[in-house]
Design a binder for these strands. Sequence first.
DNA 1: ATACATCCTCTAGCCGCTAGAGGTTCAAGC
DNA 2: GCTTGAACCTCTAGCGGCTAGAGGATGTAT
Lengths: 142, 142
Amino acid sequence: MLTIGTLSKKTGTKVQTIRYYEQIGLMPEPGRTEGGQRRYDNAQLDRLSFIRHSRQLGFSLDAIRELLDLSDHPNHPCDEADAIARRQLKQVEQRMARLKALRTELKRMVHECSGGRTGDCKVLEVLRDHSECLTEHEEIGA
Amino acid sequence: MLTIGTLSKKTGTKVQTIRYYEQIGLMPEPGRTEGGQRRYDNAQLDRLSFIRHSRQLGFSLDAIRELLDLSDHPNHPCDEADAIARRQLKQVEQRMARLKALRTELKRMVHECSGGRTGDCKVLEVLRDHSECLTEHEEIGA
DNA sequence: ATACATCCTCTAGCCGCTAGAGGTTCAAGC
DNA sequence: GCTTGAACCTCTAGCGGCTAGAGGATGTAT
């Protein structure tokens, strides 16, 4: 039986985060001592490791919820898990493409700044005037 | 004089967002009509365009605050603006590197899934067992 | 018995918006 | 001048995914 602190160390998850996962129903309610402290078993350790690892690969908590459900039913066809992973891959690729365009623009800004006064700083000028940009970069975030 | 709706259309910023920027002090309080509606001038249009464009390049609102301050003082040396842009460039590059590693891992997962039952789905297996991964990918988010 | 690390709950905050309720103002058409 | 209705107003709450802190209870080693 593991305390929440031990589970925290073993999985690299903050104690608060574990309680948060329980609150939103991603982790099951664990057993408790007479005094009311949480005690975890190995199944729960595995589950939390799964969650953490999925988070590191960028899956949303909602996607993880689905993946966990699938993982709990070993006889279902696995197309769905595959689809979720493909979706995630696609998202990652989109984000990469976006960042690549940003990098180009930022590099250009920085290169052209010759270290004078802010009045004729290329960085600020570009920010002021979008028409100096090579690419459109409409959507914010993503 | 522009209404908030017109400003919204011209800059591609939602009305609510403009009010939010005012609330956090990123946009100045505009003039008002007798009835209390906001009216903007061209200086404010420029400022909002600057903010939006910076957001599109991924700058945080705090960074934008600094950039706007610098932009307001044309006689200062522009090292600082340059530094902010370089910082942003660095962040973008770090995020790209991270995403690249994730993409590799996700691709591998997806390729190895042969479409059977969830019980022996490679996707779920990898998520269950980090040791199957080629790279460490410790930090979440970023 | 005592110390003190760890645990508990609860509330609020982070970023950058976004949505909705419920009410007021403006401008155009008649 | 009056009516309509789109656009405005304020205020509050919510999103994702945590994180921090207050204030108090428990567990374990000595």
